[in-house]
């Protein structure tokens, strides 16, 4: 049963990768990579259960955090062109 879930996650990862390759705008690509990272977290956890070694959950936990930080960093790089700026949005008062 873990095998079926792993297979479904792998197919979904393939579809997300296809969207990341053919996305028209750069935001499509960022969104697809973010979804791909979420599915990677699930895949690592499922592989730990599938092979009987739940120690992989630590890697999965770290990957969830790195995925979030990476997405935010890529978005800041796209928006300001520089990771070091203390930028404000041009028209985005909340």
């Amino acid at each position: 049963m873990f095998f079926a879930a792993t297979l479904a996650i792998l197919i979904a990862m393939g579809l997300a990768l296809a969207r990341a390759l053919m996305g028209p705008t750069v935001y499509d690509r960022v969104l697809a990579v973010n979804t791909f990272g979420t599915k990677t977290v699930l895949l690592i956890a499922l592989l730990g259960f599938l092979t009987g070694r739940p120690d992989f959950l630590d890697i999965s936990l770290v990957y969830a955090l790195i995925n979030f930080i990476g997405t935010i960093a890529v978005l800041k790089l796209i928006k300001y062109g520089d990771l070091g700026t203390v930028g404000h949005a041009p028209k985005g008062e909340p």
Binding site: L31, S60, L61, L65, I72
Partner: peptide, 28 residues
């Protein structure tokens, strides 16, 4: 316990990153 931690992290970070993505796309 580790699985609950993963779930909490996902539930906090994925709306934040989706909001940041929508904000970046719309302000662009």
């Amino acid at each position: 316990a580790k699985l609950i931690l993963i779930l909490i992290f996902l539930l906090f970070t994925s709306p934040t990153s989706t909001y940041a993505l929508a904000n970046a796309a719309y302000s662009r």
